[in-house]
């Protein structure tokens, strides 16, 4: 029952980290879409790990589905 209401503007995830990203995104990355600048610029290493995950999944699928003769 202590969780914030739906759409609460003063909830902890909406007040602590994200306003800084929204306010400085244009100035620092020159990208209007904040999600894009977060994904590719502020959290680029996260995206790198994500591509590693999906690459590994692709390799595993190929290894599993290859028929041995």
């Amino acid at each position: 029952m202590d969780m914030p209401d739906w759409g609460a503007t003063d909830s902890p995830p909406n007040t602590h980290v994200s306003p800084r990203y929204i306010e400085k995104s244009i100035e620092e990355t020159a990208t209007p879409n904040v999600v894009t600048s977060l994904l590719a610029d502020y959290r680029g290493y996260d995206t790198l790990g994500e591509t590693t995950v999906i690459f590994t999944a692709g390799i595993v699928c190929i290894l599993l589905l290859r028929r041995y003769r």
């Binding site: 503007t9 995830p13 929204i22 020159a30 904040v34 994904l39």
Partner: peptide, 23 residues
């Protein structure tokens, strides 16, 4: 969270949703 007017210096963060959960 797509900034509408990119020439405004101070962006009001109350007008845009939280982009972190989306990412």
């Amino acid at each position: 969270p797509i900034i509408q007017d990119s020439h405004v210096d101070a962006v009001n963060s109350a007008l845009y949703m939280n982009p972190l959960p989306h990412v």
